[in-house]
Design a protein around this nucleic acid. Structure first.
Lengths: 155, 155
DNA sequence: TCATTTTATTATGCGTGCATAATAAATTTT
DNA sequence: AAAATTTATTATGCACGCATAATAAAATGA
């Protein structure tokens, strides 16, 4: 029985990863959140902004400013969605694709490093606990039933 | 083999918990970060601000503004540290102690809910993965060797 | 003792994430 | 079709966490 709480371990560990990711991203002139967003955009077809929020596990409004800055930096282009006058399609520029690759490498390096340190068994336990937490929270919020993390991957 | 990355699960899950914690904290006029800080202060002896950052797994500078607001809200008092003219001792006010109890209940409820959903085995896997990640990151940053999460608890 | 270095804290700016509110374009209802 | 509702997006303000820089008080070294 560990001496720390689940939420504390989750929080402190995520913060540590976030610090590290931001540090890495800085090396190629980016940030963690921008990197995650780049990874959530389909390089070939582009991605309707509607699906970005759920895909990234965050509120849609939170993306507004990030996308704005990404557009200003020339990482993405917003194109009107022919199927919905309200919606927007997010496309990567060549520059964005380049940064996307950089971001992907950071993510891959981290995940491989962790997987090489822990057994698949422990990792399964980790993912199950994550699933349980998300389920539990989703149950409390009736309107958010589609916000489970399963079935999504950042690519 | 899950279809999502470790960092993604960590991030999305933590964000979900953070949203929930903030929602709960709002009910008694507080926030998640303030709640965590309250829980990290010893109600009897007070806590030197030096130890708050490491205890909470965050940079010391990040606490400055939070403590400032907490003082303005009457949750804490900063008293000079008799043993070190540079340092400050953080003490809870009666009001702070009250909010600390509220915050503690939120944390306890969450942890109990998770523990009732997952086996101790899975939970051990979770904690081991968290430890591995923190170790790995600590190894990269030579100056941060004392930043492991083990041995700390938010109370 | 005096100078240098280390340590504790605060100030500031930036990026991030949320809630809330506003706007505009569907969609549904009548 | 016109009105009401829903949905997609943006704007704004607040809280948070970080890095960097500034300040002040030890601690260390000469």
């Amino acid at each position: 029985m560990k001496d720390i709480t689940i939420d504390y371990a989750l929080r402190a560990t995520w913060q540590a990863v976030a610090r590290m990711y931001n540090e890495e991203a800085k090396k190629f002139g980016s940030t963690m959140a921008v990197g995650f967003t780049l990874l959530s955009i389909d390089p070939k077809t582009g991605t309707p902004s509607t699906s970005l929020g759920p895909k990234m596990g965050m509120e849609a409004t939170s993306l507004s400013r990030i996308l704005k800055r990404m557009e200003e930096q020339g990482l993405i282009e917003r194109k009107p969605n022919p199927k919905d006058g309200r919606g927007v399609l997010i496309h990567l520029t060549d520059f964005g694709l380049e940064k996307r690759t950089d971001s992907k490498n950071v993510v891959l390096r981290f995940n491989e490093a962790v997987r090489s340190k822990v057994s698949q068994d422990k990792l399964d336990g980790f993912f199950e606990v994550m699933d349980s937490i998300n389920e539990m929270i989703a149950e409390k919020n009736v309107q958010n039933t589609d916000k489970t993390i399963n079935g999504h991957k950042p690519e």
